[in-house]
């Protein structure tokens, strides 16, 4: 039988309620941790502040996604109708003055490309898809998508200390503290 090698991911602590998680998060933030996260079954508003997170940068990407969509539409509609192959349908010309007729195309493509950028941008920012994660090794963590709240502090954090971090989580109100290990 081969011996299984395990790698420590970090501590996982359970918090009973959203309020306790919020207060616990403030304590972990003040202790100076960087590689940690709070897990909740629904988006907890205000937790960004308690964790010291900045506003998401997603809108920045989406703006440029939308801009690309707009430029594509201009090239597609104006470029083909006026420049490449002007077609006169029902004696209606196509030139700079008729650009209003291309507005719907520009609008729709702006939205379409913004939508795609939102989807792929948010997946990239969230680090998904990622089908496995060390935390999935924890049995109690399955409740994170049901009704339990957790804080996990990673061993990679420079402030991590086996005893002190555990004591910090206990002091912050955490229970069922577990050292999560993944098999490799």
């Amino acid at each position: 039988m081969t011996k299984k090698i395990k790698r420590v991911y970090g501590y996982l602590a359970e918090f009973e309620t959203a309020s306790k998680l919020y207060k616990g998060a403030e304590k972990v933030r003040d202790a100076g941790f960087k590689k940690w996260d709070c897990y909740s079954p629904y988006p907890l508003h205000g937790l960004d502040h308690a964790m010291g997170l900045k506003r998401s940068v997603l809108p920045f990407f989406v703006f440029f996604g939308g801009l690309i969509g707009f430029c594509t539409a201009v090239a597609l509609a104006y470029g083909t109708q006026v420049m490449i192959y002007p077609t006169v349908v029902q004696a209606k010309p196509a030139n700079l003055a008729t650009i209003a007729a291309f507005f719907p195309i520009m609008f729709e493509l702006t939205i379409l490309l913004s939508g795609f950028t939102t989807l792929f941008g948010v997946l990239a920012l969230m680090g998904l898809p990622r089908l496995n994660h060390p935390l999935f090794a924890s049995k109690q963590f399955q409740k994170a998508t049901d009704d339990k709240f957790f804080i996990a502090i990673e061993v990679r954090d420079s402030n991590f200390n086996k005893e002190e971090t555990k004591a910090l989580l206990e002091g912050a109100g955490g229970s069922n503290i577990e050292l999560v290990e993944e098999e490799i």
Binding site: D37, C38, S40, M51, P129, H133
Partner: peptide
């Protein structure tokens, strides 16, 4: 997609 529900 490997969703974990972390606040990040």
């Amino acid at each position: 997609l490997g969703w974990r529900g972390g606040n990040r």
